[in-house]
């Protein structure tokens, strides 16, 4: 029984054959994840700052788009970008489609989190800063955002981890990341060992991230 288990899930021959592929996928997953985190959070931050100008039509637009991105499953968005948009002439690679979809989803969530953070900064902070002659943008940048960002770090970290794990969804549109490589190797070798390797690769990648998230949560928990 144990032999069989090892032979099925930890088949040495299969594993050594496909290890390079998994490593290749590992690198692509990291690239995709970093790209999503950077563009998603930056975009969310900008949107939240734009929203603080409280221009009605602009804010309605932001709220509308954010709501849609929060309500749709990320996989549905990826598939729309990759399979539906080309029918109206907008073509993009699988990597770009996945990156764009996940970035937009992260931007939407982080916009909401940053906005809640901005709202949590008391009105007196705005007034004190404006009374010393700081402009609206200077107040936002030097007084409000530093305080808002601090309280948003724990929820933002958790959300970012959850969305970065979504890079595995790229496998569905054949982005050559870990899961896709594992799946392809599995169908060639007809042995699930590549899936085991893929799973281990994800654990190597994300367990430190989960621990980082836990650390951030206790570090920033009730500090203001």
């Amino acid at each position: 029984m144990l032999d069989r288990l090892v032979d099925t899930f930890f088949n040495w021959q299969v594993m050594s054959e496909y290890l390079p592929k998994i490593v290749e996928g590992f690198v692509i997953t990291i690239q995709l994840a970093l790209a999503v985190v950077v563009s998603g959070i930056a975009c969310g931050l900008v949107l939240a700052m734009v929203r603080s100008f409280r221009m009605r039509p602009v804010n309605f637009l932001i709220i509308g788009v954010v709501d849609v991105l929060r309500a749709l499953p990320p996989l549905v968005i990826i598939i729309m970008f990759y399979f539906a948009l080309p029918t109206v002439g907008i073509k993009m690679s699988a990597f770009v489609a996945t990156w764009l979809a996940l970035s937009l989803v992260l931007a939407a969530f982080s916009e909401e989190i940053f906005w809640a953070g901005i709202l949590a900064v008391p009105k007196g902070q705005w007034e004190a800063a404006r009374s010393t002659g700081l402009t609206f943008l200077q107040t936002l940048r030097f007084v409000v955002m530093p305080q808002a960002v601090r309280i948003t770090i724990p929820p933002l970290t958790n959300r970012t981890i959850a969305i970065t794990k979504g890079t595995a969804l790229g496998a569905v549109v054949a982005v050559g990341e870990i899961l896709y490589q594992a799946q392809t190797a599995y169908s060639f070798s007809y042995n699930p060992s590549p899936l085991t390797m893929g799973a281990i690769a994800y654990l190597i990648l994300f367990i430190p991230v989960v621990y980082f998230g836990r650390w951030v949560e206790t570090r920033f928990a009730w500090k203001r």
Binding site: I161, K165, G166, T167, A168, L169, A171, V172, I178, L179, A182, L195, G198, A199, Y202, L203, F206, I207, V209, V210
Partner: peptide, 9 residues
């Protein structure tokens, strides 16, 4: 363990 594991995987 399961928080680190992408659900699709």
């Amino acid at each position: 363990f399961f928080r680190a594991f992408p659900p699709l995987v």
